[in-house]
Design a protein around this nucleic acid. Structure first.
Lengths: 145, 145
DNA sequence: TTCTTATATAATAATGGTTATAAACAGTAT
DNA sequence: ATACTGTTTATAACCATTATTATATAAGAA
């Protein structure tokens, strides 16, 4: 039930001074429904049937609101635009160099790395990010031809 | 002697069809000398005394050349511009959320993560990246006031 | 050295993601 | 109803990066 997570997200927004609007609801819903990690523009395009007048700025603004509220993570890559991930639980990404596909995978216990970083660099550690890069199965087949 | 690494880099470029130009030499030298991870613009500005006519495009073009040759890594973050790291040996970064400072730190053996990703997602794994986020000692002091 | 040619540079324009601005609008409290 | 605060829309601006093109130059051949 992904709706549970969505409900929790809506609930946690209510506790702040953030107002719930139809646009916000739709953006959040889309983020929690889709299993991918869409870009702001993909979200914008996906909702243009429902909200023909919605501005791109609204998408960006609200993604920032959600990010600040800790409901959404922003993933940034070199060339293209940011992607947004509604799954803020501990997980990592495997990314295809060729087609850009992103696959989630779970791995326990990189807390040790955080601890080490804290000791070595004296940082007050908040979070970490890890990504593995390579070629996805589909692209491996394509390249084999 | 960081010059050793620079010499190796120059040598490895010579083995390809990449020509050595004064601009390229200067950019490489700057990258290997400076202990930071400069942006393209910082490199551009740092070299404008030596090369008053150098174009920004030249910096970007050559950073890409070096990246393709495996001499330099591009680090991308959310808000600002890419940073470039001449140290391609296995190391990770601790980044301050507040001031953006980047500190290198070494940590062994995340090969296991690569292996797992390979098995779980069926990827042909090439590389990985990890970063720890938090507040640096200086900013901790500042915030304590 | 000089010639040749593929490659590099510089200057500039274009691209594209993201953000700022200002006016119109909506929800809530007084 | 009125005032207030926050939101959306539309549009313009911003800024990092890339494309374009004419000119210059590195590196090997003659």
């Amino acid at each position: 039930m992904e709706n549970t997570e969505l409900r929790e997200a809506l609930q946690s927004l209510k506790s702040t001074k953030v107002r719930m609007t139809p646009q916000r609801h739709a953006i959040l819903e889309f983020l929690f429904d889709c299993e991918q990690h869409p870009t702001a523009d993909e979200i914008y395009k996906a909702l243009e049937d429902k909200f023909p007048n919605m501005s791109v700025a609204t998408v960006y603004n609200n993604l920032r609101v959600f990010k600040d509220a800790g409901l959404v993570r922003e993933l940034t890559y070199g060339d293209s635009s940011s992607r947004f991930d509604s799954n803020t639980s501990d997980h990592y990404h495997v990314i295809c160099d060729d087609c850009g596909k992103i696959v989630d995978f779970h791995y326990p216990g990189l807390d040790e790395v955080e601890t080490l970083a804290k000791h070595i660099a004296g940082f007050n550690v908040r979070d970490h990010r890890m990504e593995v890069y390579g070629t996805c199965p589909d692209c491996q087949k394509k390249l084999a031809n």
